[in-house]
Design a protein around this nucleic acid. Structure first.
Lengths: 391, 391
DNA sequence: GACAATAGTCCAGCGACCGAACGAATAGCC
DNA sequence: GGCTATTCGTTCGGTCGCTGGACTATTGTC
């Protein structure tokens, strides 16, 4: 009773994957799509219905002669994954069902750096519990802006107090599997699982936040590295000897293209843009306004950032050879002013610069990726979802 | 008869993997190691014997009371993989059996650049045919110093005539599956499959040849990228504006740490070291001799190379977070003079520089990796090996 | 209304694994 | 030498999951 069940799990997963990737379809189409027999598919679909993962929809439109098939589709209700994001100035939660629909979404501003981690965790846990009460979930994934090993924070340049904190422990009362991961890594997975570049197996994601984050997917797998720090791009040593970085070294890429570098170059100390009390998005909107008004200094600052991005992106493109580089965070928000100098710098260093695009997921990328990861076990082994008694 | 057989294949593979990784052992130990039943293991071993992949050895030393087990071990004879290397100044062939033993090895000097690709392929094919006649193989993998897509050369900075050549076609008469891959990638796989760092899942391999090659293994998988150019480190744009590179751009890493850079820095144009007609290994040996004699210029040149290696390695370590960086080719040969400056430069840029080691596989790394890749199908699906009629 | 075409279910059969029982081979002990 | 405990490997009945074909259900076409 060991390996036999694995066949069953694998085939259940194959049916789910077919429904997810190709949309609702009849049992006959599923049989064609998975290579299994109609009889087997019927049995598998029956089990998936019993587990509440799929449901029978309407009839398939006839199209031609013959008995019309009954549509099978991923069940919107019943099984969800929750993504939670803890970041420097906000908390966010997003609930995704197996059909890939967003069922709930929340974001609250919170000056995380000023609070105790325990206090922040309590709030995040409460938000998650509320989501779980409304949409029962099979797991939670927490996105955190730093390096994480297991569920313990190892490095957190912008939230130094969190180093050593066990983030998962803060969600223990939920009695759900809780994973913790780097926010940029999860954002990369979100770009991979949804959006216009879904399932591109080689993808690099760069996000401009307070720091610079990166997530790399190669061969359809997230690059983790031996200690979970793989794909971290913020502290690439590209221009040694330049500005000091929060990490203690000099010349990190972050010091060139981070948000701080942009604001410093775009405005003098007295400028409202450099008021640390103001909301970041407001300030970014103002930068965009000034750029659109043709303010020379702003445009020059943005061009410098774009060039810096291109220089670093050249290294990433050379090493990872991705099909697409996705820019998120503030890079996406100000992308229209960054892409030209970026492409120019990139083109001078690699053969094919035509693969940098802006993320369309906005600031929900990390939570969406987290919810996606939380749902992953369902798709790899559907038998982990219990049979519904109501059947 | 579809998925059922996959279970069989997977379990056959599990038994093989256990024998490969943990050495010869009895059926009972195999059952314990794989989680299968003794009965199932007996059946699986029987089939593997019929396929000529394993054989029964002597009795297991008693050790304690009870009936001694009969040892099962990977069969040295019968199934082999062939690795072939086409390089700038030599051809090499290596035959590996399923037990991981080298059964045949050959290397001939050949000025590849001066010959037509067809002529070189004919010689390589003949060498391979001779090896195949002595040790029947299930496949051939050809290592080539350049970028390869499918079996066609796309880029070959040091063998420009080969661009567009279908390498596999040159081996068609063997009637064996032929794959073609980058030499550094295969060397990385060799380091991963054998040697002191075998099965380290995150490993970066750097080799100093005429150019600089790199191969990256992340999560136990070779990094390929969207067009097969992933992990190519030679043309990393680290110091733009400096020396011109053969690729048409400037400042590529190769111009800093390639063999040409070393020889240029270590000797004046008239020096015998810079005689392109001399054997490379001779010249490298002379460099080592001069360094051991304390020649200031040589030592300074080597120190510069080491520093340059460290600067680039810092980028690789930051991005890939490998457990180990293995230096091959001339980097290994002159490693004793390079490691100190390398570690120093690396330590200034990343947190943990204690993971650079020298390859012990010498110049056989690429062919060994090729033979390993050629054998791979046997370990992923042992049913690809036909049943022996002699049973 | 008969016929063709397609969807889905039923059923016997087969392959693969499991668990238990059995014979085989050895060490230790009297 | 004979007995027992222990471990190894095989045999055999049982179960699970998939297959292929037969069968029913449902629709469009003639």
């Amino acid at each position: 009773m060991q390996t036999q069940g694995q066949v069953r799990s694998a085939n259940l997963a194959a049916v789910l994957a077919c429904l997810r990737d190709d949309g609702p379809r009849s049992r006959a189409q599923l049989a064609a799509g998975t290579g299994l027999t109609k009889a087997t598919v019927s049995s598998l679909v029956g089990e998936l219905v019993d587990r509440g993962l799929v449901s029978e929809g309407g009839l398939l439109r006839p199209g031609s002669v013959g008995r019309p098939g009954t549509l099978v589709e991923l069940a919107g209700r019943g099984t969800c994954g929750i993504g939670v994001e803890i970041n420097v100035d906000y908390l966010a939660v997003l609930v995704l069902d197996v059909a890939g629909e967003v069922r709930r979404q929340a974001r609250v501003a919170l000056d995380t750096a000023a609070l105790e981690p325990a206090e922040v965790l309590a709030r995040a846990s409460a938000m998650t519990a509320a989501a779980h009460a409304e949409h029962p979930a099979v797991g939670v994934t927490v996105a955190f802006p730093g390096g994480v090993q297991g569920s313990v924070v190892r490095t957190a340049p912008n939230l130094p107090r969190w180093v050593g904190t066990d983030v998962a422990a803060g969600f223990a009362e939920l009695a759900l599997p809780v994973r913790v991961a780097n926010d940029a890594d999860l954002s990369a997975l979100a770009e991979w699982s949804a959006g216009p570049h879904a399932h591109v197996p080689d993808l690099v994601y760069l996000t401009g936040e307070v720091g610079v984050g990166g997530g790399v997917i190669t061969g359809g797998q997230l690059l983790r590295g031996s200690t979970g720090l793989g794909g971290e791009v913020g502290h690439l040593a590209l221009t040694p000897g330049d500005a000091a970085c929060g990490c203690g070294r000099t010349g990190c890429w972050e010091t060139v293209v981070g948000l701080a570098a942009l604001l410093r170059a775009a405005a003098d100390p007295g400028d409202p843009l450099r008021d640390p009390g103001r909301d970041l998005e407001d300030r970014l909107a103002e930068v965009a306004d000034r750029a659109r008004d043709g303010d020379a200094r702003t445009l020059a600052a943005l061009a410098d950032i774009g060039t810096g991005l291109g220089v670093g992106a050249a290294v990433l493109v050379s090493l990872f050879d991705p099909a697409v580089v996705v820019l998120g965070g503030y890079f996406a928000q100000l992308g229209e002013f960054l892409l030209d100098p970026l492409t120019q710098a990139l083109g001078a260093r690699v053969a094919d610069p035509h693969r940098v695009v802006l993320s369309t997921l906005g600031f929900t990328a990390a939570v969406r990726g987290g919810a996606h990861v939380a749902l992953q076990p369902v798709f790899t082994d559907p038998t982990t979802v219990p049979l519904e008694a109501s059947a």
